[in-house]
Simulated scan of single mutants.
Amino acid sequence: MSRDEFRKYSDEEIKHIQQLELMILKDVVNILDKNDLKYYMYGGSLLGTIRHKGFIPWDDDIDIILFREDFDKALEVLYEQLPDKYDLIHMDYIDDCFGSLAKVSLKGTTFGRWYTSYVNYELGINIDLFPLDNLPNSDFLGKLHHYGYTFCYQFVINSCIKMDMYTKFRTKLHHLAYDILNFIPINKKFWKKLLTKEMTFFSYRETERVVDCFNLAGYMAYQRSDFEPAIKAKFEDFEVRIPKNYDKLLTQIYGDYMKIPPEEDRYNAAPEILDFGKY
């Protein structure tokens, strides 16, 4: 599918999504704060916090990130303490979920992604939570760790969902992998545990660097000291935690992050199915 074939959001849709995501964020932050769990605005949400004092006007998601220890505890407390209107989506809780990140999803809404027709759980309007895992100072070991994660992640995907790919050949290859992985006496929980072990391979020791293994841009290491002590910043109508060296992190991720992109690039592709339900 070419870029021109994606559906674009209407102004009303993007504002409505952002309104609901802000509601989710506030509820999640309230629980994290009550349990003394440290989070940081991340990615486009961190960029929006600094450049726009809130959402990037055309952005359709919220990303926060936590050090692994806090991330694992956050999954437990969110599972227990989230209001009933939310689902916690993570591969440890849902059989055919393949994401190493977590999502807090609003029940009664629909946010159709490329994979949602292939899974049994419902994905609503949501926000993302990412873990930060320990990484050694060696870029050679760091890249090896990234390749290991990518390798294990493919086994998780291929064991969890049976989907149609971009070409017939790739579809047949993927279906074959799915059938084999679901035939042999090793279930998908094994591959998920293997993926988590790869992500947390260096957790046994303190490291100066950390990494977001799920980073779609590929291997990118961050300095642990750039996050704490966090500072507060305005995001829309309330305060959030951001890394203390946000300028360094944003420059590392985006380059000249204060430069507004050209108008033709100011949009995200809308999902094929978008339903706000009663909201």
Results as ranks from 00 to 15, higher is better:
L141M: 10
G54F: 09
H145Y: 03
D128V: 06
Y118D: 04
G99S: 14
R51K: 14
L82M: 02
T49Y: 09
L82Y: 01
P131G: 05
V77H: 08
T116P: 05
D84Q: 10
G142L: 00
T116L: 09
N120P: 08
Y79F: 14
Y79C: 13
T116K: 03
Y79Q: 15
F98V: 02
V104G: 06
D133H: 08
I65W: 12
H90W: 08
S117V: 13
D95N: 13
D70M: 00
E76S: 13
I89S: 02
L78R: 00
G112T: 05
I94M: 06
W114T: 12
D84T: 00
G148Q: 12
L123E: 05
W114K: 10
D92S: 13
Y115D: 02
F130T: 00
D59M: 06
L101W: 14
L66T: 05
D60F: 05
G108K: 09
P57M: 11
I62M: 00
D59Q: 01
E80D: 15
D87A: 11
D128T: 05
L82W: 02
F67W: 02
D128S: 11
L106G: 01
I50E: 07
I94S: 07
L135K: 08
F55G: 07
G108H: 02
C152M: 14
D72N: 13
K53D: 15
L132M: 11
T110H: 11
E69R: 15
V77W: 06
G142A: 07
C97G: 07
E76W: 08
S105F: 03
